[in-house]
């Protein structure tokens, strides 16, 4: 039964991907993407990656999907001009040939992967004790490969700076995105009152269980960011001006705490990002707690977009 389910899932995923490629209308393709992200979440569960499924649902499908939907609606008027530039059939044939070739090469590679598969699972298992956490993914992300995670938080922050850098000079330091008007009788305002408290609890919960079960800071942070944006879009709240000192501090706070704890490791445990015996779980938790608000804020501001209004 599981095989049939997998086969059905794979077919469905491919059909949706093909749809996104051939759809005439960009908006239709984007809606396809939202559904596609959801199906991928099922794929991750079938591939025994519940942590990845959570991330896909929250960031890959969820936030990216919402971003694409908003962009597609705004870019409507550029559609016709773009469609006129569709390349002729020789280009398309060449593209199909070469892209098909890549698929063929990858398929050969997949079939030629060695048996038994190499794995770092046994090594991870043997060393999990030293980290004090129960979820191996968290162990890898915050102990064995902690530097990747540190860089990742920097990547998110750089993306935010990149988005901000697109602001017109005149409104530098202003508030991102349009101001949404609140209409107290709207369904939207109601939804934005009811959902965020629940979402906040779920976000913190997903973050909290991350130490021992699937979950973690990125997944939790994106749920919280989404809930805050919901309130902004309903007009119940407004994005802060990006020049605020507290905002800047809150954004860099998480990464700075991470680096500080990492640097302390040089003195206490002999290496950058090392944790002294017995304190590992505590320090990992401290890093995660520091990162959660910074990440939630960064993700939310990335989604809120380019500053458009003066701070007043």
């Amino acid at each position: 039964m599981s095989e049939a389910l997998n086969a059905g899932l794979a077919l469905f995923v491919l059909a949706l991907a093909a749809w996104m490629v051939v759809a005439r209308d960009t908006f239709a393709a984007v809606v396809g993407f939202v559904a596609y992200g959801l199906l991928l979440t099922l794929v991750w569960v079938q591939l025994h990656g519940v942590d990845v499924a959570l991330t896909e649902g929250a960031i890959g499908g969820g936030l990216t999907g919402a971003m694409l939907v908003a962009a597609a609606a705004r870019l409507r008027r550029t559609e016709a001009a773009a469609r006129a530039e569709r390349p002729g059939w020789p280009t398309r044939a060449a593209a199909a040939l070469l892209a098909g070739g890549v698929t063929a090469a990858l398929a050969v590679a997949v079939l030629a992967l060695p048996v038994p598969a190499p794995s770092l699972a046994p090594e991870t298992a043997a060393n999990m004790g030293a980290t004090g956490v129960g979820n191996p993914i968290t162990g890898v992300l915050l102990a064995f490969r902690a530097v990747d995670t540190l860089l990742e938080t920097t990547v998110v922050l750089l993306a935010l700076i990149g988005v901000w850098s697109l602001a017109p000079d005149r409104v530098w330091g202003g508030r991102p995105g349009p101001r949404h008007r609140a209409d107290p009788n709207e369904t939207l305002a109601y939804l934005a009152r009811v959902l965020p408290p629940i979402g906040l609890v779920v976000g913190v919960y997903i973050f909290w269980v991350g130490a021992d079960l699937p979950g973690g800071k990125f997944q939790g942070a994106s749920i919280i960011a989404a809930m805050w944006l919901l309130a902004v879009m309903a007009g119940l709240s407004d994005a802060p001006p990006i020049s605020r000192g507290w905002l800047r501090l809150a954004l860099v706070g998480g990464p700075l705490v991470f680096i500080a704890i990492g640097a302390a490791g040089v003195a206490t445990a002999g290496a950058f990002l090392a944790y002294p015996d017995g304190l590992a779980k505590l320090l990992i938790k401290a890093i995660e707690w520091a990162l959660l608000p910074s990440l939630a804020l960064t993700l939310a501001l990335i989604l809120a977009g380019v500053p458009e209004r003066p701070a007043r």
């Binding site: 979440t41 519940v50 649902g57 609606a73 779920v202 919960y205 079960l213 989404a226």
Partner: peptide, 28 residues
């Protein structure tokens, strides 16, 4: 068990996506 958490996340973000859609179409 944790699959339930995934479902919960998806449900919340689906609501978010539809609001984003609504706002984009109405005042975007």
């Amino acid at each position: 068990g944790p699959v339930v958490d995934v479902a919960l996340t998806l449900a919340l973000l689906a609501a978010f996506a539809s609001v984003a859609f609504f706002k984009a179409v109405t005042d975007g």
